[in-house]
């Protein structure tokens, strides 16, 4: 079978299993939804009525396939708290979460790549040791802690940036960035450490290759050898790790959106969890997992674009 077709099939299977698992967690686990919604004082008749409304009286698998059918057509049901369509709720909040994660990723890559390049100029040198120690420190800092520290430093002590709250683009680019910079830093300042370590170690391996010697023998200055010859062949693991770490980033985004009161998908999910809003949680978790799986799929494709050897193997066979 064609490589691409096989990958797409695999993607479909994983997505199916992921949504099913979400459904099972949300539905099997103890805690009666109807009671949770109506409170302990509700009469049995009320509860039964609500269960029927929610379709909870039908067999689980039937409900799952119903849900899956509508989900495929873009209908994730309605929140039974607000009555809002879940898909709409997610769509409204998605831009904020995306902006947060993209900014965090840009910060992370923006620090990690130069730091790794400078580190391998002299392995074991002052800069290398300094950046390794810094990375080690940040690695021990959870994002919720970093968020608080950043608020303490930039909002409380220095009074430079707003502590919480979100300004949409419509209030001006600067206002928007001001409200997003601390949240993005809370994630990016942690993420870079992992990326830097991966890239550094791959760079060191690449720098031992003969083609690097050949590049030097051509008379290329060290920084051009690094940037033009070493960086790209060293970035494959980095890209994979960026893809895998998006999972961590999504988790971090849930926390950071909560700390900084950003109206993103993570906060939507938390709200749903606190309110026992079953349909909302089911939809949001499935959406997040599907997005994560998709991104990793795309990263895999990117890999093929970047590495001609992989492209060769995959698209010619």
């Amino acid at each position: 079978m064609h490589w691409l077709a096989r990958q797409v099939l695999r993607l479909a299977v994983v997505l199916f299993c992921v949504t099913l698992l979400t459904f099972l967690i949300v539905n099997i686990l103890p805690g009666d939804v109807a009671t949770a919604i109506l409170g302990g004082l509700a009469t049995p008749e009320d509860l039964a009525g609500l269960r029927a409304d929610l379709g909870l009286d039908r067999p689980m698998l039937v409900r799952y396939f119903d849900w899956l059918g509508s989900a495929l057509s873009g209908d994730l049901g309605r929140s039974h708290r607000s009555g809002e369509p879940v898909a709409q709720a997610i769509a409204d909040r998605l831009p904020v979460s995306l902006q947060l994660m993209i900014m965090a990723q840009v910060i992370a890559i923006g620090i990690a790549v130069p730091a790794a390049l400078l580190s391998v100029r002299r392995p074991g040198g002052l800069f290398d040791r300094l950046s390794a120690s810094t990375a080690f420190g940040f690695l021990a800092t959870p994002s919720f802690m970093l968020g608080i520290l950043l608020i303490y430093l930039f909002s409380v002590t220095l009074d430079l940036l707003p502590a919480t709250g979100f300004s949409p683009m419509s209030e001006g680019l600067w206002a928007n960035l001001e409200s997003m910079i601390l949240p993005a830093l809370s994630l990016g300042l942690i993420e870079w450490t992992v990326l830097m370590r991966v890239l550094r170690s791959d760079l060191l391996t690449t720098l031992k290759e003969d083609f690097i010697l050949l590049a030097r023998a051509k008379g290329l200055p060290p920084w051009r050898v690094l940037l033009q010859h070493a960086l790209r062949p060293s970035s494959f693991t980095l890209i994979t790790v960026i893809g895998l770490n998006i999972g961590g980033l999504i988790g971090g985004a849930v926390i950071v959106e909560q700390i900084f009161a950003l109206p993103g998908v993570g906060r939507l999910l938390l709200g749903g969890i606190f309110n026992r809003d079953l349909i909302l949680v089911q939809g949001t978790v499935s959406f997040i997992a599907a997005g994560f799986v998709l991104v990793n799929f795309l990263v895999d494709m990117l890999y093929a674009v970047l590495d001609p050897r992989v492209r060769h193997v995959r698209f010619r066979s």
């Binding site: 290759e209 003969d210 050949l214 050897r309």
Partner: peptide, 24 residues
């Protein structure tokens, strides 16, 4: 030195599998 290396000296390594940049 780099100038001299680039202009006046050429080198061919043992293994052409590793001496050419795989992504260029």
């Amino acid at each position: 030195f780099r100038q001299l290396l680039g202009r006046d000296i050429g080198i061919v390594f043992q293994d052409p599998m590793t001496s050419l940049n795989p992504v260029m």
